[in-house]
Design a protein around this nucleic acid. Structure first.
Lengths: 108, 108
DNA sequence: TACCTTAATCGTAAGATTACGATTTAAGTT
DNA sequence: AACTTAAATCGTAATCTTACGATTAAGGTA
């Protein structure tokens, strides 16, 4: 098959899974870390920072844009990328909420 | 190709990506939520809780075991599943650390 | 021993992901 | 208009993922 049974789960579960999926590649983690630690917007020198080709990096950026974590604004001939603050906060709290569901181990 | 260039990234980036990947499916989110909210260990009635076949659920459980988030102990004819407290705490702080890298938006 | 239950594994099909080179698109420059 | 630069998209190949039915393995019961 190969296709997830999305409709069988809640939208919260799907949202969180999609967010996690977007974080599920070291290149995308690296991109986010790079954007998070750079003070200003980054005008596309992300390709030079990563050990991947331009087209592959562009594909990863697309994935991150899809879940809203980053946004790109056209700045002359290049594109400036930065983290979307609102989406970032939202993702942070959603992920935190998952981990906070489990507290002390009542057994095992 | 289809294979991730793991060796080109740091082990921290790979670890976090693998963790996120494990969370990147609504069924696995559902399993974790189920285990997290149930007080005691769950003796394999997870299949009944999910809209998936027994073999598919078993496969998802395997993925979660692979990253250590859950563990299963044989209890007679069935298996008791629960969240691995240490791995859970570890995952929580790793994920939190990622989100804490970005603070206030310096631009955009 | 034969039977039943529970869960893992096998085999397989459909589809998604990752990666790259090549091409296209868009904006600025000469 | 022709050229350069930056980034998205296209086309494609290899591999991974998701899902299910069928089978196997392990443990308990009649």
């Amino acid at each position: 098959m190969g296709l997830t049974k999305t409709q069988e789960f809640t939208s919260q579960q799907n949202d969180l899974a999609n967010l996690a999926k977007a974080l599920g590649h070291p290149a995308r983690i690296a991109i986010l870390q790079f954007l998070a630690t750079s003070q200003a917007c980054v005008c596309g020198d992300i390709v030079d920072e990563l050990p991947l080709s331009q087209s592959t990096v562009s594909q990863h950026l697309k994935e991150l844009k899809k879940v809203g974590l980053i946004k790109g604004s056209i700045e002359g001939p290049s594109v400036c990328y930065c983290i979307d603050n609102e989406a970032w906060q939202n993702a942070q709290s959603k992920m935190a909420a998952l981990f906070e569901m489990y507290k002390d181990p009542s057994c095992c």
